[in-house]
Write a protein that binds this DNA or RNA. Structure first.
Lengths: 194, 194
DNA sequence: CCATGATTGGGACAATTGTCCCAATTCGTC
DNA sequence: GACGAATTGGGACAATTGTCCCAATCATGG
């Protein structure tokens, strides 16, 4: 098999395992078994575990980047874009209830480990933050766009954490509705000023 | 030294290490070194690592329980009580910026590990949830007290996660101010109905 | 002061970890 | 079909893990 294809399969399996079990709790052997290759072969594709982590982070950044920009390209209004962002919580609600937010939980773990890739994980937050900020700017909020972006990012993180703690409750849906209502209020505030 | 005193020192050190480094990333040897006892001696006080974790969770529950009830005993109004809860974020802002929320990050890790003590960690959330619910009930919100409690809990979790990701920004203070403003609005809503 | 039980440190144990090597196999190309 | 490079599996390696045992030391009551 082509090396690049095996490499992609490794990243895919590692991505899922790092999310579901955590980075440290996932061993080389776990990933190798999931991919269906030997531990020895593994070394041919990635020299260290940290290299896999970096590849996984890079993959996640690319995936999220494409998802966000698709919404913009689809001619969604800035408000619709932010609503789509909030909708991620419902789109992935099953996984979030089981494992929390892939961005937040990875960052928390790497921060505690003082892992060199902590800054890489923060780039995932940056991606969402900058994209959201731009949307709020386009909504006519140049002065507080960043604060609004951080606010909705924090609300999402909190909702994911609590949904993970209480997976069998309608909490997540309620919280999403409140966030959409908040978004409406932000947009209305703008309409008044115009 | 009395066995009980050594035991308390072990719990204190483990509590800090589990918070700062995570449960899995903290080894028996780490805790033993922090306490200043030998690894062999350790076994005399705790048979397994999971037993230490349970003791740490129990300790955290007791500490938070006492803190919350002190506010009630101090004749603070229900609204003041909730404000004090929100104020935890500022009181512990340095630690939160470095290591996130002790409750949320521990729960996330144990959830990923499918650790038996996941339910114990959830009790920490329950403690805050039930206490907050009671305060909102006392504020005259019997119908949506639980939803309000969950909401403020989620907001706190999200604020802690983002403060951990962006420790050098005034974000946490802004978010606390917004939460206090939200609390005022909830209380005002009540005043109108009266 | 001694005897008894509580507490301790040193170290053994198998299992697993990330890392690394190397001989065998597979593959594309001539 | 043969050659050379790409890819593979099996296994070695030291280090660390949680767990456990045991002999030495301590404190205390007789």
């Amino acid at each position: 098999m082509a090396a690049s294809a095996t490499r992609e399969k490794i990243i895919t399996s590692a991505d899922r395992l790092f999310y579901e079990r955590g980075f440290e709790a996932t061993s080389f052997a776990d990933v190798a078994k999931a991919v269906g290759i030997s531990r020895g072969n593994f070394y041919y594709h990635f020299k260290t575990k940290d290299q896999i982590l970096d590849a996984v982070i890079e993959r996640r950044i690319k995936d999220r980047h494409d998802m966000l920009n698709d919404w913009v390209d689809d001619r969604q209004t800035p408000k619709q874009c932010v609503a789509s962002f909030i909708g991620i919580l419902l789109m992935n609600n099953k996984k979030i209830r089981s494992f929390g937010c892939p961005v937040g939980t990875l960052f928390s773990e790497l921060a505690k480990l003082h892992h060199p890739s902590e800054s890489g994980a923060r780039k995932l937050f940056d991606l969402f933050r900058i994209w959201l900020r731009r949307r709020f700017e386009d909504m006519g909020r140049p002065h507080d766009a960043d604060a609004l972006a951080m606010h909705i990012l924090a609300r999402s993180q909190g909702a994911a954490t609590l949904a993970n703690a209480y997976p069998n409750e309608p909490f997540l849906e309620n919280e999403v509705n409140q966030m959409i209502a908040w978004l409406d209020a932000v947009a209305d505030q703008n309409a008044k000023k115009d």
